[in-house]
Amino acid sequence: MMGRKPYIREVSKTTWWLKHPRYMNYMLREVTSLFIGLYTAVAIDGVWRLQQGREAWEHFIAWTFSTEAVFMHIVFLVFAVIHTTTWFNVTPKAMPMHVGDEPLPDAAIIGAHYAGWVVVSVLALLIAGK
């Protein structure tokens, strides 16, 4: 091994994702999942209140109209939308589809996800509106 001395460049375990916008976007997608989790916790809390009885439920509903709760929901919504759309946009990679012999264009696969989202949202609003 005369003279050979391959040099290894260390990559920081903590700050690597600051090195490139691509990595920051990835971290954003991953971190936003936290807010999905937090919102899920709020939803579970609501169910929990509901089974505790009318008073607990009404208290919970009243809380959701408070300024901090509205603010929190807006924040959750923004991050949830970021999380959801970034995932929607990569679905053609994970699930390429064929119709007969022809590959389905990426836009169709992504579009189907958005369409599904709209349908579910409309249904939810209709049920909630009753």
Partner: peptide, 26 residues
């Protein structure tokens, strides 16, 4: 793989290795 997708972004031949990996996961 945690699906950063950087591999596909930089691939000069549009092989899309990230897609291959996600399909393999599924």
């Amino acid at each position: 793989c945690s699906f950063v997708g950087a591999c596909s972004d930089v691939c000069p031949k549009h092989v899309d290795p990230a897609a291959a990996i996600q399909q393999t996961k599924i």
